[in-house]
Design a protein around this nucleic acid. Sequence first.
DNA 1: CTGCCTGCAAACTCTTTGCACGAAT
DNA 2: ATTCGTGCAAAGAGTTTGCAGGCAG
Lengths: 154, 154
Amino acid sequence: MSLTAIREKFRKFLAQKSLRVTNQRLAIFDAAFAQKEHFTAEELLDSARAIDDSVSRATVYRTLPIMTESALLREVDIGTGEKYYYPNQSGGSTQVAQVVCVDCDKIFEISAPFMEWYGSTVSSKLGLTPVSQRLQVSAHCDSWRLTGKCPRRS
Amino acid sequence: MSLTAIREKFRKFLAQKSLRVTNQRLAIFDAAFAQKEHFTAEELLDSARAIDDSVSRATVYRTLPIMTESALLREVDIGTGEKYYYPNQSGGSTQVAQVVCVDCDKIFEISAPFMEWYGSTVSSKLGLTPVSQRLQVSAHCDSWRLTGKCPRRS
DNA sequence: CTGCCTGCAAACTCTTTGCACGAAT
DNA sequence: ATTCGTGCAAAGAGTTTGCAGGCAG
């Protein structure tokens, strides 16, 4: 899906939910889809301000849930206190696991279709209906194991 | 393992690490092992104070990592902001997944030995060495689906 | 024009920390 | 007698929210 097509999808989502298309929301959208890695709210704020310096932290925090709901962004919580986001290029609701480097917090997204099967199997045994599942692996990079340093870390 | 045996294990762990056996630490220990469900730091504080009312929030927060390190407690982060804990009766380091009811936050612990295999497989492909893995399924209880109410919820 | 959106700053939640006192070894 | 552990209260991090003014529809 092209960037303009996705931006159009965002406009439509806003319209459909009777939400207004503001410059700030568009700036945040553009900033989000310009990211190459997972990003935090704070990083998104910086990028969005480079596009439209009137964007405030509050608006970023108010816009993120909208973009997550509309499946434009994915939210990842790796338990570090802050949430990470990344553009959902695929458009679908693919099941993904994360491998997280505990040294630099880099996140790798790994397709894990079996997760959904596991979720249903385990839930039904408990009389529950699964909503979502997450699978995360924390790991050291091998260079850390060998040299005590993570190449991506300060 | 009996409760007194576990309490003894706690004393030994403290001694071995040159940590002092204080009334507060023992009260927190007893409070933790009296819990029937997963509990939060705040809940543990309440229970511990019922045993020794001199226990402070700070000491609970300082003791939890000690008990987690010593494998007496397990820590679970389900992404709700606060961490949950529960006594590790088994003594071992079993791989467990969680099924979490999104209505009442009840946590079910499910044995999932394959997680470790998955973690190593996926990590090695990325040149990483796995440290830990977590698998969580969020679900509604069926009574919520049918009646719109969760039996355990306010 | 109406009412949603916005920026600002204060509030919030959970957890951590600096300090001086008190207790375990 | 040391030194670690403690309670208290303040600080911290990330996120949310109340309010008065601003802009989209």
